[in-house]
Write a protein that binds this DNA or RNA. Structure first.
Lengths: 221, 221
DNA sequence: GTCTATAGACCGATAGAC
DNA sequence: GTCTATCGGTCTATAGAC
């Protein structure tokens, strides 16, 4: 699964192990794969901890325990590192969507998705990319794998949104795209960070409160 | 009013023009004041456009049309520039709070505050500071004027929150601090930016939708 | 003539890239 | 491990006010 991530992000050596399934080539590819996974994990952690601008590739290399030059063998630029982290998160998101019961109510599906995103953020595994950085944005928009995954995930969630609006579980007057953005924004909601920093509430309580305010609002019902 | 900003941010010369109200000193101080205002405006714009990390002090100087060294005569560091921008926004916030009818319902006051914050963001006048940058955070936390203003504003809003919870206009089960953070987060809500980027809705419509989702949630009532 | 503020060159450090 | 660009921050010569 995550093999598709790396192979698309960087084509490895031109003499690909794809066609010739020699044992050595496969083994080598596996080694590369393992290391790439470690790199992406480190990027993911640093990205959620300090954000893109404050993350340095030296830090990434140090965290993985490899030389900076080796990093550039895998990923041609800092932006590509971030893109790879995003791609991996999106693949994890797809895997999570697959675990949901398709017969459940759309509204419950949406809540589950939001809970999952927020749990990821609280666990420090949600990369936070500044939407303002233009170079990063350009690279991301040029990354077809990232875009494709984002589209695929958005369409699955979007279908639930429209279904929930038709059954009047979600307000039908809101543009579906606004609902989608609102849900996505929970993945980088600073409220989580602030409440966690306060230290007097459990992660579960924080998540439930934010889910509640997201779907039911601040007002009393 | 904004005089109090600058005088606290940098004490100018030790031989202060405060005691001796000679015409020359006053005129000079006014010149400085006007320029400082221009600097803060530029910082504010750049801060809302690119964020703290991507904003360079060269850009600020260029935008104001002065030399970088002159900038440093006014503000001793880049962090102080950001702090001054935040202080100014908080002072504007206080001024806005003063315009509200004190006899109105607390819930309406809160909605008005959120609308004001979002309008500021859409107008590109809401400085966005990354909560992750530690040097900036340290400087801000050491800035007594910033902290004092933040406290003052938060207390006024907090009083409305508690009143609205007592009258059951806001859900009384939510911790007031969570409500406060949730409202503050609307000032940097990426949903506004995304919806505006879509280009098919007016600013007013976007603001009203987000106010609605904030207070009433995504669900149908 | 003196004194201040300015402008623009300049420096050291750091980070991305190779 | 090197190279280059950039950025935050400083230094100095000069222009202008008094």
């Amino acid at each position: 699964m995550s093999l598709s991530v790396s192979s698309a992000v960087h084509p490895l050596e031109p003499a690909a192990p794809a066609a010739g399934p020699g044992r050595k080539a496969t083994f080598k590819a596996q080694m590369l794969q393992v290391r790439e996974d470690a790199i992406i994990s480190a990027v993911n952690r640093l990205l959620s901890e300090k954000g893109f601008d404050l993350m340095t590739v030296d830090e990434v290399a140090a965290e993985v325990g490899i030389a900076k030059a080796s990093l550039y063998k895998h990923f041609p630029s800092k932006e590509d590192l971030a893109a790879a982290a995003m791609v991996r998160v999106l693949i994890k998101a797809q895997a999570f969507l697959d675990t949901l019961d398709p017969s459940a109510e759309p509204l419950l599906q949406l809540k589950a998705v939001v809970r999952w995103m927020m749990a990821l953020q609280l666990a420090g595994e949600m990369p936070s990319l500044p939407s303002q950085n233009s170079s990063l944005r350009t690279k991301l928009m040029a990354n077809t794998e990232y875009l494709g995954l984002l589209m695929a995930v958005s369409e699955r969630i979007g279908a639930w949104i429209e279904a929930a609006q038709h059954s009047a579980h979600l307000s039908p007057t809101l543009p579906p795209i606004l609902v989608l953005y609102t849900l996505y924004s929970r993945a980088c909601d600073p409220v989580l960070e602030f409440m966690k920093a306060g230290g007097q509430y459990s992660d579960e309580a924080i998540v439930e409160w934010v889910v509640s305010t997201c779907f039911d609002g601040l007002r009393s019902r």
